[in-house]
Amino acid sequence: MSILKIKNLSFAYESDIILEDINLSINERDFLAIIGPNGGGKSTLLKLILGINGYKSGDIKIFNQAPSRSIEDIGYVPQNTNINTAFPIRVIDVVLMGHSNNKFFKFGYSKDEKNLALDVLDKVGMRDYSKSKIGSLSGGQRQRVMIARALCSNPKILILDEPTANIDANGQKKIYELLKELNKSITIIVVSHDISVILGYASKVAHINKTLTFHNIEDKKRDINRDDKHFCEVEMLEMLGSCRC
C-alpha cells in the first residue's frame, strides 16, 4: 500500500526551478535511497515532504494527508547535525525534543515522555550516554542520538538527510545496520552519497537532479542474482547508469 505519494510536484525558492515534475510513490517498509549531485534538490524535496517548505504546484500526500498534518507520523534527521556542539545540553534533553509539542506550551516532560526517550536511546545503543554533553560525543554517536530524537514520536516514516556525511567507515556501518534493523517496522527514506554502501541496504533508489529518476532495485537485485548467483555492487551501479531514462 502506498503511504507517501508525490504527484507532478514542482518547486522554486525564488525564480530558479529546483524541482520539476516530481512523481514518487513509497510503500510501507520501503527503504528508499535518494542520491544525486550537490545542489540537485534532495534536501529541498525532504523539506517539502516535511512541510517545512510550502509548494504551489503538484501534490504531496502522506497517509492521505497534507504534509504538515502528519507531524507525529514522520521522524526527521536533518543534514549537518554537527553544528551547535558548544551548546550545553545533555543527550537525553536533545532526545526529549523529539516529542511533539502540540499545545501552546508544556511544563517540562512527563514520566512517560522521559521513559520513551530512554527506550529509543536504548534502541540506537546510546542509553549509557544519556547524561553526557552532546558536544563530547563523536560524529557517529551524535548522529545516533539524532536518530533517537526522530524516533521519539513513534514515527511510521523515518527521513534522514545525509546521516553519514563526515562519519568514519565504522560509524557509517553502525548507522546503516541500525537503519536496517529499524526498517523491520518503519519506512526509511535516506539521502546518501555513499552509493556503493546504500545499495546494499536500499530497496528503491531515486536519483534527483532537478528531475527524479526512479529505480526499483529489488527487481534488479533479483535479476542479478538469477544471472550470477551473487550480488555485485559494481554491476548494480552499471545497471543504474545504463538505464538513464
Binding site: 516535511l50 517545512i52 526527521y76 536533518p78 525534543m97 502540540n102 530524537r149
Partner: peptide, 10 residues
C-alpha cells in the same frame, strides 16, 4: 537548540 526542528514538533 534547533529552531527548525522545534517548529516541526509544533
Amino acid at each position: 537548540y534547533d529552531i527548525e526542528y522545534a517548529s516541526l514538533r509544533g
